[in-house]
Write a protein that binds this DNA or RNA. Structure first.
Length: 325
DNA sequence: AAGACGAAAGTGGTTGA
DNA sequence: TCAACAACTTTCGTCTT
């Protein structure tokens, strides 16, 4: 159900394990003084969000935490960084994996011959498993990295995603499932936790599996990890959609204002947040004389023109907004 | 001709027996 | 497990600019 809660800006730290808390990008905090920051160093967006309650500033486009008033935990966090992780992994990975594959093939031919080989074979299988999981872990991290950069995600989200994957692996949630599905789901999940949600379609576009599998993996993870993700607010989508439509910050504010009014009047209940965001942006753009067609908005947001129409009809009527051209 | 409109049938996920 | 259900999509014919 979409209950359209207004405020969902910051990551839910409670839901992540302690290890992940280590990875929220504290080492990545870029600027010292917060007030003079005008744009995101990662993606150049000007839609910065200042959350004074949590004393942090982050990018409304990509979610990069630019500054926050928290204690720096020091440089050791880097040891858990994904980049480091794969570098360290080389200790066991590429070398063993080549030797190993050879070893296995020779052994299989022997294995069918006698009992004497059984123990050896078992041992070999065990290391095979160890190496396989390690290998797939490395692959998963590289996939997270690949998709993240395609989606322009900041380091803090990438790290959170890597941590989540590690956690899922410890709990043996990966075995028997496709790595691609799980990693895609984890990315989708991490973006939502950080209040900068990507749509399922956007994740699917950079993933190698279909939408159906991603959402299945997503639901599976939510259940197994007992995570509660607050339903995305339409507001979370506004900065990114607006910048994709090349609409300025005045229109962003207007769209957000419309969304706030709508949710006060409970017009958002049971409706998809993306559709609400799309319609609000559509209306806000017209009100500011910067018309975008329903098609334009539809392409960027991934909701159909029909849905945009329906939402925009409801909103403009119920909120008494005159949308005259 | 492009954009907007809305009816009607189809889809996939959720819910409750 | 299955059927009912709501939101959303697809498709398509029509109206408006």
């Amino acid at each position: 159900m979409f209950t359209g809660k207004a405020k969902m800006v910051a990551p839910e730290r409670d839901n992540r394990g302690e290890e992940q808390d280590n990875a929220t990008g504290r080492g990545k905090v870029k600027a010292a003084e917060s007030e003079d920051i005008k744009e995101c160093p990662e993606c150049g967006s000007k839609s910065l969000v200042r959350d004074y309650g949590k004393a942090e500033i982050f990018c409304g486009d990509c979610g990069l935490v630019i500054a926050e008033n928290m204690v720096d935990l020091g440089p050791e966090w880097r040891a858990f960084d994904s980049e480091q992780m794969s570098k360290r992994a080389r200790v066991g990975a590429p070398m063993t994996y080549r030797i190993h594959d050879k070893g296995l093939s020779t052994l299989t031919t022997w294995g069918s011959q006698g009992q004497g080989q059984v123990k050896l074979k078992k041992w070999q299988q065990r290391t095979h498993i160890a190496n396989t999981t390690e290998r797939s872990f490395i692959f998963a991290l590289s996939e997270i990295e690949r998709m993240s950069s395609a989606l322009n995600l900041p380091m803090n989200i990438r790290e959170a995603a890597s941590m989540l994957y590690r956690k899922a692996m410890k709990l043996h949630l990966i075995r028997g499932r496709s790595i691609e599905g799980i990693t895609s789901a984890i990315l989708y999940l991490s973006c939502r936790q950080y209040g900068v949600p990507r749509t399922l379609e956007e994740v699917r576009d950079v993933s190698r599996v279909g939408q159906k599998e991603i959402s299945r993996a997503y639901r599976f993870l939510l259940r197994e990890l007992d995570l509660k993700v607050i339903p995305a607010s339409p507001v979370d989508f506004v900065p990114r959609f607006c910048s994709l439509l090349e609409l300025g910050s005045d229109i962003q504010s207007k769209a957000i204002e419309i969304i706030k009014k709508a949710s006060e009047r409970e017009l958002t209940n049971g409706r998809g947040p993306i559709g609400i965001a799309a319609a609000s942006i559509y209306i806000a753009a017209i009100l500011h004389g910067e018309h975008r067609t329903q098609k334009d908005v539809s392409v960027v947001t991934g909701v159909t023109e029909v849905t945009i129409r329906n939402r925009y009809k409801e909103l403009s009527e119920q909120l008494d907004i005159d949308v005259l051209l």
